[in-house]
């Protein structure tokens, strides 16, 4: 399984903070986004925002970064701390 976590405005729009995906057919972050986008228009629209960031296992990553079974992927808007 691949655990996907959402934060801040994206979490609120989707109405969930975590989903689990079957790892079959998933080899990179883009595959995770495609799998989630297939859940419906709301998901596709929310995940198509150009400025979303991703992390794998607590480190910043990119759309083509490899993802494997057991990974924790996070998707979130640009950060605004400090």
């Amino acid at each position: 399984m691949i655990v996907v976590r959402f934060f801040a405005a994206l979490r609120e729009v989707l109405g969930v903070d975590t989903v689990s995906l079957d790892a079959d057919g998933i080899s990179c972050v883009d595959d995770v986004l495609s799998s989630l986008s297939a859940r419906g228009d709301e998901w596709r629209d929310a995940l198509s925002a150009a400025n979303l960031l991703v992390a794998i296992n607590h480190a910043h990553a990119h759309a083509d970064s490899p993802v494997q079974d057991g990974d924790e992927v996070a998707i979130f808007p640009p950060v605004t701390g400090g």
Binding site: A8, N51, A74, F76, P77, P78, V79, T80, G81, G82
Partner: peptide
């Protein structure tokens, strides 16, 4: 760093843009 700020007003709130 993965922090996100939301501004809370009397009758509304909004996420801060980067």
């Amino acid at each position: 760093a993965t922090f996100w700020k939301k501004e809370c007003f009397q009758e509304s709130e909004r996420w801060v843009e980067q």
